[in-house]
Design a protein around this nucleic acid. Sequence first.
RNA 1: GGGCUCAUAGCUCAGUUGGUUAGAGCGUUGCAUUGACAUUGCAAAGGUCAGAAGUUCGACUCUUCUUGGGCCCACCA
Length: 751
Amino acid sequence: MDKAYDHKKEEKNLYAMWERNGYFKPKGDPKKKPFTILIPPPNASGKMHTGNVLMIAIEDLLIRWHRMKGDPTLWVPGTDHAGTETQITFEKQLKKQGKSRFQYSREELYQEIWQFVQSNKGQIENQMREMGASVDWSRYTFTLDDHVLKTVHETFAKMYKDGLVYRGNYMVNYCPKCGTTYSDVELKHEERIDPLYYMKYGPFVLATVRPETKFGDTAIAVHPTDKRYKKYVGKEIEVEGVEGNFTLKVIADDFVDPKFGTGVVKVTPAHDKNDYEAGLRHNLEIKSVIDLNGKLNEKAGKYAGLSVVDARKKVVADLEEKGLMEKIDLKYLHTVALCKAGHGIEPMVLPNWFVKVDDPKKSFKKPAYEAVKNGKIKIFPKWREITYLRWMEEMRDWPISRQNVWGIQIPVWYNVEGHEQRIWVVFLDKTKTLHQGPISQHLRNNFTLEEMRKGIQKVFIPIYDMADNQPEIHVGKEMPKNGQWIQETDTFDTWFSSGQWPLVTLGYPDSEDFKKFYPTSVLETGWEIIRLWVSRMVMFGYYLTDQPPFEYVYLHGMVRAIDGRKMSKSLGNVVNPEEYVEQYGVDALRMGLIAGTANGKDFNFPRDRVIAFKHFGNKIWNMGRFLLLMREQYGKDVPQFTSALKLSSEDKKILKGLENLTRTVELSLNKFRFADAAEAIYQFMWHEVADNYIEQVKAREDKDVALSVLTHVYVTTLKLLHPFMPFVTEAIYQQMPDHGESIMIEPWPTA
RNA sequence: GGGCUCAUAGCUCAGUUGGUUAGAGCGUUGCAUUGACAUUGCAAAGGUCAGAAGUUCGACUCUUCUUGGGCCCACCA
């Protein structure tokens, strides 16, 4: 053995050896209950961050532990197409080349991104190998694999049939820059100081931060109990505006806070979430004045074509000029909603597909709520449960359509016949010229529907009136034969497909894997996606299989930067795991992360611990080296350890310690207390075995007994340590006398 | 505004049903070291467990409040 453990020399070879010998495939005693984990799929085009490393460390630990216990053990790897995120990344790259997505048809853009992802995909897969993940690569799943698409399409069709998905107008969080909508949970909120404008509105003065949306106002609201304005309620009032006079109805609604501003609110149902809901309650007209590019439309008169920001400036200036601006509070602090890329969100009313989450006939969310409530699914740490339960209680219908190209296209066709005037199509013709407008216009310009389909970027099919005759809808991947059809250009929200991860990875509904390994054992992930992902998997699981998709949920904490702040590129405090792997080895990095936190709380990247465990790896390496040296110097055969040996009190003590350790590790792992187990092994090996027992062996007369006990204790602790630090333990094990094929398939020590 | 969470040694953190001298890693100080390991050993210094009140025979651990962090949710225009 070398003088020091060299992780660079060992890690790659060991992983190749494990994989080559098929150790990662499920074996074990077929009579025992299988143990299954599905990897939370990382972004296929991304690279590994510290959170992923922690995830792999914990999952690999559980997997290796159960595999050694002889359970049929399966860990399925995979990657996610990460719709919005990937498309944003790709578009940034396009921009650098001076191009934009509008130069491509939907199909071309999809193919471009597909190539982009394919060329980046190898990185994350290699990194999973590098981290020692003992996943079964033969079951690798990418969220755009054909069999995934098939399942997702079928699920959607079933939900459509069951009346659990519908198409409707809805107030969505639309980002004009990204050209797509976001769900509530994808947004971030930021505090800002903006001017609050007090505008004169007929007899009222009212406060707003968005005077430019005034063209979409369809009412004025006051609080029902507000005496000041009681006489106006129900009346129509005349308002002088920058575009001439207009009349508005005054309504009473308790969403108005009489203490804010003047207690009077302009109601703009098309561009404000609050107002939208008030609009629904009072049957107000929804008057959109902002288009999909974030510019004011023709309803804004002379302001048409201006961006929201420019229009605001101009409207404010004009109001001041006309003497309609009472005052401006320049230091108004409020929160604004931002999209992932940090752009301002424009609330808009658009047609979208939705999942009805609480249908009275068959509730999508109810079984998922109850599963956790009544302990059918157990969440660790337990105090995170409340996040899940509260979310489930509050959850509203889930918008599942995204105006992205990169993703799974919603398998819906619309029969445009008779609706050519209303349906708006954006497409590129053969010469790559962009056309947008209603289908009727394209037809007049001698384009065929086939040409539109071929070069399509987007189709918008407005819903004027729910009772009106809507275009016929066909749900399915293939275009129907008879009729004039055009496919929905929206894709599914990423979580709609990844929410079916336990089903698609295991071959739902009828594969052998599905029968054997579903429901899975543990879902391990970061707590920040309880609502986005965990809840959706549980809902789909119950909807399609009447069973929970997993028994336990373990939620690890977020790894913050060394300075205690959230890692971010702009702060420059991102910890790159590669550097630590290079310098200290995978084992040290994994063990450091696992020991760095005990109970799922967020924690700072535990740099010192990583270093400490690098030292620990070297320490046990040298313990092994010294053990071999002593055996060699002893010269004679060392007997196999049995309890029949004539043991000294020191021997008895260390054996007792080993027994306690074995019990502690088992107990801790059962409770998901990984750090406790790690700490116990560290203390025992270093301070009891190395510092005490080995020192005492040096002076022993009965070397045969002492070396026999030492070998036994040492190899047993190596086994206990293996799920935590797989590489160094295997490397040493291969040097031990009478070793087996691999430590990872050795039986798990029992007390 | 609602909720979750944290405040323990110089730093980063453990401390699982309340029970004898509160622990670890790193750091600091002193000594040691030619049978493995300087990625070593032995030893030491260092904490009124944020503050206050309460429950209890007994509280770092339970309750309430105060102070100060972090995070999540939320429609205050």
